[in-house]
Design a protein around this nucleic acid. Structure first.
Lengths: 340, 340
DNA sequence: GACTGGCACTCGCTACAGTCGAGTGCCAGA
DNA sequence: TCTGGCACTCGACTGTAGCGAGTGCCAGTC
């Protein structure tokens, strides 16, 4: 059975009021604060239907109504109008992000900005290595048997790793290794490199073969398999706003989830192009975040996506505002990356 | 006026019991759990003195006693015996730290280990750049007018930064710049580099002067002034143990302080050689941490100190155990760094 | 048929009184 | 100097009562 327009309006009003006041909202207060054009009794009837359908619920018999996860979902999908950013917010974003000197700086500024604007916990994934292309590989001799491999990606990320060579190696050979590696790999997306790295070993002249073998295994390991994804976090103190009413009294599970990088990456990192993902309460696959909502999106130069960013907050959050902010920040960061 | 041995024993017993149970401890319970050899009444008299002197206090008239910050201080300074680590803990440390592949990895493993062992919030400062020496400077041409400067420090830290040159520069000049920069700076402690960097510009042949000027300003800025210090954090979820009884009900100030890198660096970074610093409650200069205690120490290869690490927890913490763990972890990390 | 006003009912919240008991301070006596 | 005894304090807990916000239902109106 469908919900007519007025019932939807009632749901919207409930969500808006509850988000604003954090208190169960009753029929009387509702007609006072919104122009619904009907009496409290009528609203009560509508509420009863909305409750049957699972969009709202009563914390206890003689209390007002509170939206359920399902209610928020409907609100987000069909009822919320996009809230444009205020000029002040736009200015804040610009002011915050200009002057960033390197990628670390960009990511840190972004995550703080996002936390500040949304007043929630912000998470920003570094540009994913898998989605980056190799811009340059540098081999720096540290001693006769040790090399520092430095990989510079087109997204600005720089990864380095120490290589212990099987034996001493002259400077010319390092030069040759450097030439070969760059020739083969520059411009290639990192996720595509493994077969090429493999091929490099086979192509090497005999005297370089052992060194190249060691080098290639390190390349594979560091650049593709291991800890390739990083992220930054800010605003955990915002969890304490709303004094433990959100998150059913315990921050523990949330804080635990936020410490698990793997978990967060799953959450934030699986961004599809130009979509903003909203996960509300139960919809979340991570048990520890069942009491929270996540708003995330991808970012990158132009229309490509190189990483994700988003916020984690109570299910009772200002979805339209948060969504707008997350999108805007992602767009600005994308532009910033495009400039390099 | 002095405290005789028995009074000190009473204080020690109070601290130990309170830390273990988290409940105010009364005279009767005290004589039952410890071999004090006197009656509750005597203990009560001693308690009255201890209270007069400010070492313990009563939360309310008919409750047991709780140590004050001053009481903990006395306990830490004079009463606690060093608690040796259990073999299991030693094994845990070793198992955790072997297999670290690079500095990032070492720091991350260390901070998690420390959080896990102490069950508190752990903070680890990356080896301070100011205290590191330059091992190598690499200049990687990105385009004809752009260089990537990569600095490798002897502590394993690697910093990079993009340089926008005033004009196009041929490959030989880059080679020459690299040679000059390395000749002058390798082996020098970073805090000592500024005058040398300055001299580099003056020494440059005319055609290299503009490029060197730009390069040197970036070197100065990145390597010495800006965000030279980094740190890692873990175990914030541990703040929720003891369910809000610690930290007088609000995690907010603590979480806020933990987000301020500058604040944390002041706290953890000012390590003097081979001392373990314990700051208890009020002694802390940071207002937000007045309800917390900090145990920190320096670490580094051999006897030099290149960074700090420590934990933040409730004043009601197991000081002997925490101090022992912090020291042990710092020692292991130092050994690990010495190996590279 | 949809809406409205009225009314009885529910139930969490707050205030208040009373009881219980852990813990104290003090004192007289060993 | 220590100890046992005793009166006292006061927070924690329990039970009761009143309040009020909010509901569901029903009969009446447009």
């Amino acid at each position: 059975m469908g919900l007519d327009d007025r019932k939807l309006a009632v749901l919207r009003a409930i969500v808006e009021d509850y988000v604003a006041t954090q208190e169960p909202v009753g029929s009387k207060a509702l007609v006072e604060r919104h122009q619904l054009g009907v009496s409290p009794a009528t609203v009560r009837n509508d509420m009863a239907v909305l409750e049957d359908e699972g969009y709202i619920r009563q914390p206890h018999t003689s209390a007002g109504r509170v939206p359920t996860d399902r209610g928020y979902r409907l609100f987000v999908d069909r009822l919320s109008r996009v809230k444009p950013l205020s000029p002040a917010e736009r200015r804040a974003i610009e002011r915050f992000l200009v002057g960033a000197v390197d990628l670390d700086d960009v990511v840190h500024r972004t995550v703080r900005l996002l936390a500040q604007l949304t007043r929630q916990v912000a998470v920003v994934q570094y540009p994913s290595l898998a989605r980056s292309k190799v811009r340059h590989l540098e081999l720096v001799p540290i001693s006769t048997t040790r090399l520092m491999v430095v990989m510079i990606a087109d997204t600005g990320r720089v990864e380095q790793r120490l290589v212990e060579l099987p034996g001493p190696i002259p400077a010319e050979d390092v030069t040759e290794l450097r030439r070969m590696v760059n020739e083969r790999l520059v411009g290639i997306q990192l996720s595509e490199t493994p077969p090429l790295v493999q091929a490099l070993v086979d192509e090497s002249p005999p005297q370089l073969r052992p060194a190249m073998a060691t080098l290639s295994s390190v390349l594979l390991e560091t650049l593709v398999e291991r800890h390739e994804e990083r992220l930054a976090l800010a605003g955990t103190a915002n969890l304490t706003r709303g004094g433990l009413l959100d998150f059913q009294g315990s921050l523990r599970p949330i804080l635990e989830a936020l410490e698990e990088e793997v978990v967060l990456l799953k959450l934030i990192g699986e961004a599809e192009p130009s979509t903003t993902r909203v996960l509300i309460g139960d919809e979340n696959e991570i048990d520890n975040l069942r009491a929270a909502s996540v708003v995330s999106t991808g970012y990158g130069p132009g229309s490509t996506i190189v990483g994700g960013l988003g916020v984690v907050g109570p299910t009772r959050m200002d979805y339209p505002g948060t969504i707008a902010t997350v999108r805007a920040v992602a767009r600005y960061v994308g532009e910033l990356l495009a400039q390099n």
